[in-house]
């Protein structure tokens, strides 16, 4: 996989972000869960402008480890110990959560995230992105030093999506729910918005992946059917998925940097919350 440089990446993301800002004026979400989007055109909503200079105290970060490939568990051929060491040696500002896309759950086997939690005096969560299987279930493991009182999720035909809620110390105590999902179709996005749209306009941030071939359609659907949000994408050449970050208008994704530690590829997502 060839990873683009940060500068190339930013060139790609910022126009999209601006486009999203310009088009995030759609009507109320179509709660019927349709997938084609409606043709009502722009609504009244205009997302607040993004200040040029971020407020450092209101930045928080998510490290999203992913290959952006279709198949295969992340830690096949990769050492979870490297990830664990990465977490323990990361200097400030530390990330709120370390998410491992396709760190699949195998019944009766020690989950890599459990060991990472043990190594780092942290907690681990598993955010299911596929149906429960007899042996191995697809999903994203999350490791965080924060405890949670809530995981919200939906488990239904066509959509498996969860988010974990943390109380994060920004310039004001802030509750943020970090969701993840893998979107292959616009219908899944519609289904997700039906369940979590309100949260994605308030405290919910989705860091996930989206099929490259569906990205444009999904972006159009969001613009036509949802409001009060911002969306950003980042990707690598030759992978079937891109990273997607969806957040409320009262937050912004400042950057999505492609990085690597040893042989672990990850994306550092830097978010800012506005007060």
């Amino acid at each position: 996989m060839t990873t683009r440089t940060t500068i190339q990446f930013l060139c790609r993301v910022w126009p999209m972000l601006l486009l999203a800002l310009a088009t995030a004026c759609g009507p109320t979400p179509d709660n019927g869960g349709g997938g084609g989007g409606n043709e009502n055109g722009g609504g009244d909503y205009v997302a607040p402008e993004v200040p040029e200079t971020p407020v450092t105290a209101n930045l928080f970060r998510v490290d999203y480890f992913t290959t952006l490939e279709s198949e295969g568990s992340y830690f096949v051929g990769r050492d979870a110990g490297v990830a664990s060491q990465f977490i323990s040696t990361q200097e400030a500002p530390r990330s709120v959560v370390y998410m491992f896309d396709r760190c699949d759950f195998t019944v009766g086997s020690k989950q890599p995230a459990v060991q990472m939690a043990l190594d780092n005096k942290a907690f681990c969560y598993f955010l299911q992105t596929g149906p429960t299987e007899e042996q191995t279930t697809r999903g994203t493991a999350a490791v965080s030093r924060y405890q949670t009182s809530s995981v919200v999720g939906v488990y239904e035909e066509g959509l498996h999506l969860s988010g974990v809620t943390f109380n994060v110390g920004l310039s004001k105590p802030t509750t943020i729910t970090l969701y993840t999902a893998r979107f292959d179709t616009t219908e899944q996005v519609a289904q997700a918005v039906e369940h979590f749209g309100v949260d994605w306009q308030n405290n919910g941030v989705l860091v996930g992946s989206v099929a490259v071939e569906q990205k444009e359609a999904i972006e159009k659907w969001l613009a036509a059917n949802f409001e009060g949000y911002r969306v950003a994408f980042a990707g690598s050449e030759g992978t079937p998925y891109d990273v997607v970050v969806l957040c409320p208008a009262l937050m912004v994704c400042r950057s999505i940097e492609p990085l690597k530690t040893i042989n672990l590829t990850y994306w550092k997502v830097t978010m800012e919350k506005f007060f």
Binding site: F105, V107, G108, F126, L127, Q128, P131, T132, T137, G139, T148, S149, S150, V151, V152, G153, V154, Y155, H160, S162
Partner: peptide, 29 residues
């Protein structure tokens, strides 16, 4: 034994109780 897709923790603090007490629940398929 299986992944859980939803969970909630509550803490009950009763007047006169010697300590707060948690109850947690999860949903799994």
């Amino acid at each position: 034994r299986y992944p859980f897709h939803r969970l909630t923790k509550i803490i009950t603090t009763l007047e006169g109780a010697r300590e707060p007490r948690s109850t947690g629940w999860l949903y799994f398929a």
